[in-house]
């Protein structure tokens, strides 16, 4: 694990030194509030909870997290610093994990900055804090899965835009597989059990339960496995890119 902390620290600082970071945070906060109050009919629901707010997170993340993660490896490759980093006596897996953690920490900061929403629901009523906490944890975990996918696509190319488009597409598939509308269409074609299996691969399916305050170990394991699998693939891509 030698080198993990300095790599993490450098990457996180790099986020906050680029204007893109602040643009991202502002867009995320605005979109989060916008979706909740306008699309989600927050007031009409007459419920003091953040459930509707979390409902939109899979869609918000779909664009915002690829934007956060696209630079992770593509930029190292473009600027040549990857050659520096990968010739330091540090395992590739440590570099990958350190950079991933930095992106994740950055997203955590953005999530923490949504705290006015929590204050608002407490002001409006007496919310159950359980689902709020699990919602945040679930959202954070899910964000990690998006980010791990983006980190992987970012290692495939030196072009950040290509990395962005690739990861938006992969994440979109993972969101749609569990989307109610799609499931109903699939139900008309496939047997129900098959549709269920397909939807088990989706972010939405696993996030929905957590969002409602139901913490199932399987959902947590699902997100963690996506993260681990994607980061391992990321390492393999970096090492095979070197070989080509």
């Amino acid at each position: 694990m030698k080198g993990l902390f300095p790599i993490f620290k450098r990457e996180l600082l790099a986020y906050f030194r680029s204007p893109v970071a602040y643009v991202f945070i502002i867009i995320f906060l605005a979109a989060n509030a916008g979706c909740t109050f306008m699309l989600g009919n927050f007031y009409d629901s007459n419920q003091a909870s953040l459930e509707v707010s979390f409902l939109f997170h899979p869609w918000l993340y779909l664009f915002l997290i690829p934007a956060v993660g696209m630079r992770l490896w593509a930029e190292e490759r473009r600027s040549g610093t990857g050659e520096l980093l990968l010739t330091l006596p540090v395992r590739t897996s440590v570099s990958v994990f350190g950079k991933f953690l930095a992106g994740w920490a950055f997203i955590a900061v953005a999530l923490i900055l949504t705290f006015p929403m929590i204050i608002t629901v407490h002001y409006l009523g007496f919310p159950d804090n359980g689902p709020i906490i699990t919602g945040y944890l679930g959202s954070f975990l899910m964000a990690g899965a998006y980010l791990a996918i983006t980190s992987f696509t970012s290692a495939l190319t030196k072009n950040q835009v290509i990395s962005f488009i690739l990861s938006v597409n992969i994440c979109l598939i993972l969101v749609l597989l569990g989307w109610g509308v799609l499931s109903e269409i699939l139900n008309t074609i496939f047997p129900v059990w098959l549709t269920d299996v397909i939807s088990q691969f989706s972010f939405t399916t696993h996030f929905d339960a957590i969002r409602r305050g139901v913490v199932d170990l399987r959902d947590i394991v699902y997100f963690l496995s996506i993260i681990i699998f994607m980061l391992m693939t990321n390492v393999v891509v970096l090492e095979s890119k070197k070989a080509s």
């Binding site: 450098r10 600082l13 790099a14 030194r17 680029s18 600027s79 040549g80 610093t81 050659e83 520096l84 010739t87």
Partner: peptide, 12 residues
């Protein structure tokens, strides 16, 4: 090692 392009992290 000094790579040919002498890369470094520009923001630092």
């Amino acid at each position: 090692y000094l790579p040919e392009s002498a890369p470094s992290y520009n923001e630092m």
